[in-house]
């Protein structure tokens, strides 16, 4: 290691390449989480289909989204439940 590099490290000065690497890693991570709008629409359709087997839901008030923060990313799916289908129809819900 060169003397002034060592000095920089000792003085705890951030090397610009460290910042570059951090930004790069974050960009690659979020790039890979990015999905096409129609993929999200397809997912919503499939989820509604599965959930509708168990619950009566209001299809129009469903929200699906990917929330990103600096630390992590989350898939958020939000739907009000109108009623459980088993309770109404007496159909059995398979045990998980």
């Amino acid at each position: 290691m060169k003397f002034n590099t060592l000095l920089k490290k000792l003085m705890n000065k951030n090397e610009s390449k460290d910042i570059a690497k951090k930004r790069l890693k974050f960009a690659l991570l979020t790039d890979k989480l990015e999905i096409k709008a129609d993929t999200l629409a397809d997912l919503q359709r499939d989820l509604v289909e599965v959930i509708s087997r168990y619950f009566e839901i209001d299809r129009d008030s469903i929200q699906i989204d990917i929330k990103r923060s600096e630390e992590s990313s989350a898939l958020i799916f939000n739907t009000p439940i109108i009623s459980a289908i088993s309770a109404r129809s007496g159909r059995e819900i398979p045990a998980a």
């Binding site: 002034n4 920089k8 090397e15 610009s16 390449k17 460290d18 570059a20």
Partner: peptide
Amino acid sequence: ENGDMLSHED
């Protein structure tokens, strides 16, 4: 060397 460019290792 000065830490101002990504190294190939990076």
